[in-house]
């Protein structure tokens, strides 16, 4: 009630009409001014350090930036990212569809898959695939408990690169499954019903009606996953796959220029992340077809 008392006290003695000739000023924000000064100072100091501290070794950075070993490692990193994400997406789609099945066994198996691969560290899974030859020394085609038709040594078939792909891809599949499931659930049931009532099969309905509309929900988190995967691939260093970070490490193990070489690797990672971010924005636009917010409802 005290507020009321305050308002009821009249401002006396102002000629309000005379005050209308100039625009209203914004409130003073002294805190913001201080913050700007502090941040600017930090930026200037940071840049100054980058330039003057010889430990950064910018000359070395320049020298190794396009080194063939670095570029070779980069290629491996890209391959790992692309293939692991492709496997992750396919596995994720299948697991997500299974998870939404009427059949309790399919639901259970997909649930267990997600539970297992999200529940154990990726690093452990990578090591596991790296050592898989211990568990299954030979891989073959045949009938379980029956005859085997062809057989290979595991180490010949599953290279370290293959083990890395399996580890990254299967792990990604578990996360992707949840993303895809959320996307599929975001499409109203009436969409499938309309499609089914026209005579479309479940698969056609999924492919032409549900997935295209789920995409706008799926793409932003998938973009995140791709960007995250690009950097997560550096974990394959533990099983000795020659990716960007591994090769970087190999070089600085010889010349002991750790900091400059790690900067080289970081610049490449950040460069690729920026490109991927751009691509993501484009893709999001493409799949927002029919989105009321972008089209504008004004045309009604």
């Amino acid at each position: 009630m005290s507020d009321r008392g305050l308002l009821s006290q009249p401002d006396i003695g102002h000629d309000y009409l005379a005050l209308t000739t100039k625009p209203v000023l914004r409130r003073r924000r002294p805190g913001q001014v201080i913050a700007v000064v502090v941040v600017l100072f930090a930026i200037v100091y940071g840049v100054w350090t980058l330039i003057t501290n010889p430990g950064f070794g910018w000359v070395t950075v320049g020298k190794y930036f396009l080194d063939t070993r670095i570029l070779g490692g980069l290629l491996i990193t890209l391959e790992l990212t692309v293939i692991a994400m492709a496997i992750g997406f396919v596995v994720g789609l299948v697991v997500a569809v299974m998870r939404m099945s009427d059949n309790w066994l399919l639901r259970g198996v997909s649930g267990a898959y997600i539970w297992f691969f999200r529940g154990t560290p990726l690093l452990v899974q990578l090591l596991f695939w790296g050592f898989s030859a211990v568990l299954f020394p030979k891989i073959g085609l045949g009938i379980p408990w029956g005859p085997t038709f062809v057989e290979w040594n595991t180490n010949d078939v599953i290279s370290l690169f293959g083990a890395a792909i399996l580890g990254l891809g299967l792990n990604e599949g578990a996360y992707m499954a949840e993303i895809v499931r959320a996307g599929l659930l975001s499409v109203p049931a009436g969409q499938s019903e309309a499609s089914r009532s026209m005579g479309f099969s479940q698969l056609h309905t999924l492919r032409f009606v549900v997935i295209p509309q789920a995409m706008k929900v799926i793409i932003p988190p998938v973009g995140n996953e791709v960007i995250s995967m690009l950097k997560t691939t550096s974990l394959v260093i533990v099983i000795g796959v020659g990716d960007l970070l591994y090769n970087t490490q190999q070089i600085y193990a010889q010349n002991l220029q750790q900091i400059p070489l790690l900067i080289v690797a970081s610049i490449w990672y950040i460069l690729l992340t920026s490109i991927l971010t751009l691509a993501q924005t484009r893709l999001e636009k493409k799949y927002s077809k029919g989105n009321a917010l972008l089209l504008g409802k004004a045309q009604r």
Partner: peptide, 11 residues
């Protein structure tokens, strides 16, 4: 079939 909530394909 025609539904109460139209169910046109939004994309």
């Amino acid at each position: 079939m025609v539904f109460q909530s139209f169910n046109l394909f939004g994309h």
